[in-house]
């Protein structure tokens, strides 16, 4: 079993904390800055996210996902919570400026994320509308209603594209292995 940063943090190895900040600080900061225009607020959110990372380190399962994806998940959770409380205050730009292809220049640590590579492959298999909705939702933090307003698609269609697109990518990533558990959830 590898001695990942998160495993060492879970074991209360203090040196791993500094390593975590060095390795993932830029990533977390970039994720937050995309959603928080106010710099002071962004700094507070980054602090909250790192505390969440330390708290949740022992839950990291490297057989399920890579460390960078797990950290991005923790960051997104906090950002979603924040957006909900602030009633979403992301400036909506012109749709032409928002629709972008996935970046080819993301850093080495993300190149090493198997999931990120698979997502790029998965995106080629999605319907264009599914891809567009997911990009607007995940890359830009727009709500389904905002996407509907921006694209002219009915809200129900936006929801449907988002759900189906996300489920498709999830399937391609192999994250749907536990879906059998759903069978136990019956009325």
């Amino acid at each position: 079993m590898s001695n990942s940063i998160l495993r060492r943090i879970a074991a209360k190895d203090k040196s791993a904390v500094e390593e975590c900040i060095n390795v993932y600080g830029g990533l977390v900061w970039s994720l937050v800055r995309k959603m928080c225009s106010n710099k002071e607020e962004a700094e507070d959110v980054v602090q909250e996210i790192f505390i969440d990372i330390w708290k949740n380190a022992e839950r990291f399962n490297e057989t399920q996902a890579s460390e960078v994806t797990f950290i991005a998940m923790i960051a997104r959770r906090r950002l979603i919570d924040r957006l909900r409380k602030n009633k979403r205050q992301i400036p909506v730009e012109a749709i032409e400026d928002l629709i972008t292809e996935p970046s080819k220049s993301f850093s080495d640590q993300m190149h090493n994320s198997i999931e990120a590579k698979k997502v790029l492959e998965a995106f080629t298999l999605l319907r264009p509308e599914q891809k567009k909705v997911l990009q607007l939702s995940i890359f830009h933090g727009l709500s389904h209603q905002e996407i509907s307003d921006l694209t002219g698609m009915p809200i129900g269609t936006v929801k449907s594209h988002a759900r189906r697109g996300l489920m498709k990518v999830r399937e391609i990533l192999g994250f749907d292995k536990n879906d059998d558990l759903l069978k136990g959830v019956e009325e």
């Binding site: 993301f106 990518v169 999830r170």
Partner: peptide, 19 residues
Amino acid sequence: SFELTAAAISLTNLEVSEP
């Protein structure tokens, strides 16, 4: 698994240009 999927997607468009 859904949250990890969304997180993996978010990474594909992230440029860490500012440390």
